[in-house]
């Protein structure tokens, strides 16, 4: 298992390098000029110097290598410094956003909590709803519960999140006025009332994303339970006289969780990337919204860094899913 993990980690390195090259080359074709908005009174020599300071004059492979160095060496050192108060990073050149002229990593660090709170919570809620629904609808296949569950999950992944979000806003924010339609990120939780407000403003985005996630995971759960319920060992367990509860919740559920856990792990990166639309609907200023504004403002370093972070997360959680599969299922041995 350990050698397998190690080998997979080694394979992940060229994969990530290749993806970073794709992202870098794609963005390098961008038509935008970061100095386009400089005042015309700035003399051309100064402009040229600024260009070089931003690293624009160099040939492409040098810029790529420089970006890799900044991303993999300089930025982690700075994050380390910020966490432990050391000064290893020194004043090495960091990745600077063209929009705000501040380091990209700092802005991302500011945005991560919002994304994690709203989208991460939605994922947890979605999984918590999906598992029982999947179990019950598999156990009572073709019952009314199963039919309704199937229909709702069909709706869940057919109706785009920007539409469910907008409908919720119309119903609960405009007509009933229960929840605010816009997420207020400057809000701080200090006492009970502000905590309730925080819950209220999180309710709708979390509900939208939870429905979307739950509809997919519950289908997997149902299919996996159905596969296992038909197995011989279930009949054996029942024949031994075990209680139905034990048969379903211990024997079947444990075995059915194996593929579902990997699906859940594979879905984690979408917490960060796939929630772009929901963040846009409810004006949550998380990572997705940061990406959209960076794209509209032609802020290449920001777009590059964010896209690459999403790619790293995908590769990482693919690895986690494979390893989990190996740990949970003794029949699978990679060595």
């Amino acid at each position: 298992m350990l050698t397998y993990t190690f080998r997979r980690l080694l394979i992940a390195i060229p994969t990530l390098l290749f993806i970073s090259l794709i992202i870098f080359l794609l963005l390098d074709l961008a038509p935008g000029d970061p100095l386009a908005q400089m005042p015309l009174t700035v003399p051309p020599e100064v402009k040229q110097k600024m260009r070089e300071a931003l690293g624009l004059g160099e040939p492409i492979h040098i810029r790529y290598a420089l970006w890799l160095k900044q991303f993999f060496i300089v930025e982690p050192l700075h994050i380390f410094d910020a966490m432990f108060g050391t000064n290893i990073g020194g004043d090495a050149q960091r990745i600077i956003s063209w929009q705000t002229r501040s380091p990209v990593a700092d802005i991302i660090a500011q945005r991560i909590p919002q994304t994690l709170w709203v989208v991460g919570l939605a994922y947890v809620v979605g999984v918590a709803i999906a598992l029982p629904i999947g179990i019950i609808s598999a156990y009572k296949q073709y019952s009314w519960f199963d039919q309704i569950g199937t229909f709702i999950s069909m709706i869940g992944f057919s109706v785009p999140t920007f539409f469910t979000g907008v409908v919720l806003i119309i119903i609960f924010a405009v007509n009933l006025q229960w929840f605010p339609s816009i997420y207020n990120t400057t809000h701080k939780v200090t006492d009970w009332d502000s905590f309730v407000f925080q819950l209220r403003q999180m309710a709708m985005p979390v509900a939208v994303l939870a429905l979307y996630n739950a509809s997919q995971i519950s289908r997997f759960m149902r299919a996996s339970m159905l596969d296992n319920l038909r197995q011989d060992y279930v009949r054996t367990a029942r024949a031994k006289g075990l209680k139905e509860r034990v048969v379903v919740l211990t024997h079947v559920l444990r075995n059915s969780m194996i593929p579902v856990v990997t699906v859940i792990a594979l879905g984690v990166p979408t917490i960060f990337g796939g929630a772009i639309i929901t963040e846009q609907v409810f004006k949550v200023n998380g990572l997705g919204q940061l990406l959209i504004t960076a794209i509209h403002a032609n802020d290449l370093p920001m777009v590059q860094t964010l896209t690459f972070i999403f790619a790293i997360l995908i590769v990482l959680f693919n690895l986690v899913a494979d390893i989990l599969y190996g740990i949970l299922d003794p029949r699978i041995r990679y060595d």
Binding site: P269, G273, I314, N318
Partner: peptide, 11 residues
């Protein structure tokens, strides 16, 4: 499959 698709589409 490892590419972040929606961000790349936007880009």
């Amino acid at each position: 499959l490892a590419l972040p698709l929606l961000p790349l589409l936007l880009v």
